[in-house]
Amino acid sequence: MRAAWNRAGSKTIAVALAVLVTAALLLASGASPIESFRLIWQGSVGSGPKAADTLMAWVPLVLAASGLVVTFAAGLWNIGVEGQVVMGAIAASWVAREFHAPSAAVITVALIAGIIGGLLWGLFAGVLRVYGKVNEIFGGLGLDFVATGLVVYLVIGPWKRAGIASTSGTDPFPKEAWLPTVGDKLAPIAIVLAVLAVIAVYFLMRGTFFGLRLKAVGANPASAYIIGLSTSRYLLSAMAICGGLAGLGGAVQAIGFQHKLVPAISGGYGFLAILVVLLAGFRASLIAPIAFFFVMISVGGTQLSLRLGLNSSLGGVVQGTLVLLTVLVGGWQVRRARQRVRLEAEG
């Protein structure tokens, strides 16, 4: 009970501090905080098209973040998630460009290709970690850049637009490969996939032996190994699941939102997803709302540059400040609890 109160308390303190910091930054740049918050709200959920934008940005973020819940449970720092999003997008783009069939078939194959692309890239980092003892943080980081390099190479090289090589992206995919939309942008299939992913990960971690064992491996690999769990199999599975979900996010981003391959296809959602999961305290149940809050800030934040002439990076500053403060305040409370325990022990 006390733990729950403390957790809620630390969140409140962190949020309050983050709001203060944001307000101070806004005031310092000569903008009214109230007006800014109103603009963010209106720019993200204030109208139908805006809400569609926000939801479509929410999808890859939620997909990557649910995957990360699994890798974090296994004790893995899957910074390679960004590259896994990218590889999913590349694989889906390849299908969208090369595979000519009825729309439903193209889309299905493209989404599956996205899952496989991300999954393989995740497994790659996993294999490097398990069999090569390459720390997944640095291996994953390396693979992120390799994936990003590959996208740029494809966009200006083999997949360049007819005649001109430009970093603005490939030619748009054939219409059959686009996810069907309601209105201009909202693709219900994408939303459904994201919701399913979050629910699946929630139950995977709460209600299955696999989830339980995965957590055992993450909490203490040595003892998990002693009681007979194949540590490497669980680590590889976690990387594969996360890679697959992130790859699906990339696929949705490619065939559901951009409709072409662009160098910045990941949209930074992989890295942002790490922040979401940190803020969620690694719990699947909090992923969806926190991710929605984050994309509200990102999408709505663009209004601040349009209307108030502020730099659009403010959204990122708010997200970063919030997560940093949450992590620090949380650590501070744990430290105080530790000291209290020590004092009581000493009488």
């Binding site: 930054l25 922040l275 990122g316 500053v317 970063g320 400040t321 992590v327």
Partner: peptide, 13 residues
């Protein structure tokens, strides 16, 4: 990691 992203955005802002 959080500080990386935060400092980058802060530099832009």
């Amino acid at each position: 990691f959080v500080l990386t992203l935060l400092a980058t955005k802060l530099s832009s802002f």
